[in-house]
Design a protein around this nucleic acid. Structure first.
Lengths: 349, 349
DNA sequence: CTGAAAGCGCTAACAG
DNA sequence: CTGTTAGCGCTTTCAG
């Protein structure tokens, strides 16, 4: 691999001149510039980013950590982030944490040793004391994404409001016995926020508190969990799932049990991943603008890197996507006479 | 940020000693080591990877390029690759090419300038002359993934055999009028290989050649394309899609048209992404071990980096997943009397 | 067992 | 307009 010195020798100039040509600085005689360019081409020289970084003290690399790339919601965000970073000439180093707190810490540590200039992270719980401790100790720009706003700039949606919106939709349709199926209600801040928003809205509407079902990460077969949930003489008529992947698996489990969606039970997801429209019935969900969130996180962190001050948080709009998986509760479960949801209309606030 | 010099001063030793302690080299008096460790902790010193890289001439970073992270098949591979890389102490820089040949070149160039030690790539077409030219010019270990084996070590499945297996399944069930719905039949080497395997197998069985339908990347609504395909008096009874995402969209389009799957038409995908099991009917597909492929690519490239010689190619096994989206053709379309597929059984070779 | 010093590839201040 | 030189943080001979 040719170095700047090789080029200088070949072109018969000093390394400073080569550096100037490479960095397109003014004040070089055109013919000198041409000679240098020739030498560069002949040796197919590419300036060594490491030498450059060492001098500059920056790497022009962003570090990104998400729980997993196997969930399209994160993959899409990384895709958007990557595009935005590339436009600005930044590379992106990616790691996954598998929703594990220890892995999170270690992974971020590795990214920092790798000298990324800034970080974009999704942590399990931005409010957790231990997490906050190491997060606050990071001496570089950090932007959280998907997490609940806390001590670091954050790009997210209003999870509590989104949870409430889901609850209101269920209530509007006549549901009152509801359950929440979540990946890790206790561990994940956003999951908790959605839960709280959901449960509070239900309470405000005079509904009994929802049942909680927790699904361990990596457990893909929800058959037993859903069977248990739906057993008994007053099973829930609506399920609010903490993400679309879980919602889709829940629907599959319900079908196994011979229960109709939304005939016997309505299912609602969260995230708005691309494939959820392709189900039949299509999945009703609270959609987050994942790609845009990734882009926004990149923009934010890049701005901070450029010396700007990042806004403490960016709340992007969520959107209630009404698919086919949510409908009125089965007749037997309705309390009092109700007309069809469309006839009832939306309450005027 | 503390440097090795700060630590040395604080511990009252030379920077060489600090370096030795950090790199756990033998021959340091225990008390000296302890003093250095204390200084390191007090200053929370982390060795600067850039300085280290400059000296060593390697970055301990792998560069990865895939067409898009929005297709879970690639996201999963990157996930696997990343895990494997981290185990070996390597970081992973990711880029996407959007299936565009120019972007591919530019993205790889950017990765190389970023001084990745080696590359793992999925290119549109590993057989394309222009692509081969720049690929062969890369002066670092390169492993291709998903591509057809060519001039560089490759981790993939036997796409032609997989296409043939799909064809044989269709024929076994009694289909003869088939179509291929592909993302970019002309541009993608693997898509082409699957097509050839599929078409050749059909010919061998005495079936007419399949119809081709090409779907531009980014076109997510296949309604019109599928409507056109299914118009006419002898529409295909089976559709072989070049990937699961397209297959899922195809199924959605068919449903819009009021056509039953597999009653009126059978649909088969390719990739085996997680969500395809969750459809109803579940998608029949040729499954690739994506995560394992990512891991294998990492292992291969890491081995080469360690001085080993990489195998020219690693063909991982594909698997025909029989879901609910494929069945016998509708009665009217069958040629000659046939019994149900299970009764007919599999031909004894 | 420890220290001094060279040098990885590059940029930028300073000289000419 | 161009060259000389110092130095970014680290590892690694070579001396002692």
């Amino acid at each position: 691999m040719a170095t700047i010195r090789d080029v200088a020798r070949r072109a018969g100039v000093s390394i400073a001149t080569v550096s100037r040509v490479v960095n397109e600085q003014p004040g070089i005689r055109p013919e000198t510039r041409a000679r240098v360019h020739d030498a560069i081409d002949e040796l197919s020289f590419r300036p060594n980013a490491i030498g450059r970084s060492l001098k500059a003290g920056t790497s022009r690399v962003l570090g990104v950590m998400v729980p997993t790339l196997a969930n399209p919601v994160f993959a899409e965000a990384v895709e958007g982030l990557q595009h935005e970073a590339r436009k600005a000439g930044y590379g992106v180093m990616v790691t996954t944490s598998d929703y594990d707190a220890d892995t999170e810490r270690a992974a971020v540590e590795t990214l920092m040793i790798g000298r990324v200039d800034a970080l974009v992270l999704t942590v399990r719980d931005a409010a957790d004391a231990a997490t906050r401790a190491w997060l606050d100790a990071i001496d570089r720009p950090v932007v959280l994404i998907y997490n609940e706003p806390g001590s670091r700039p954050t790009v997210t949606v209003d999870n509590a409001a989104a949870g409430a919106a889901a609850a209101e939709m269920f209530v509007r349709l006549g549901h009152s016995r509801l359950a929440v199926v979540a990946g890790s209600l206790t561990g994940s801040d956003r999951s908790r926020a959605r839960w709280l928003g959901f449960a509070n809205a239900l309470q405000a509407q005079g509904c009994p508190p929802p049942v909680k079902v927790e699904i361990p990460f990596h457990q893909t077969d929800l058959g037993q969990a859903i069977a248990d949930l739906m057993a008994g003489d007053a099973p829930p008529t609506g399920l609010f799932c903490s993400n679309d992947l879980i919602a889709m698996r829940t629907m599959a489990a319900l079908r196994e049990l011979g229960l109709g969606v939304p005939g016997d039970v309505s299912v609602m997801g969260f995230d708005g991943i691309a494939t959820c429209r392709l189900l039949h019935p299509s999945l009703s969900t609270v959609s987050q603008p994942s790609r845009t969130m990734g882009e926004a996180a990149a923009t934010l962190v890049l701005k901070e890197l450029a010396g700007g001050v990042a806004e403490p948080f960016t709340i992007l709009p969520h959107r209630l996507v009404e698919g086919g998986s949510v409908g009125p509760p089965p007749r037997a479960a309705q309390r009092g006479p109700t007309t069809s949801p469309t006839e009832r209309g939306v309450p005027s606030t």
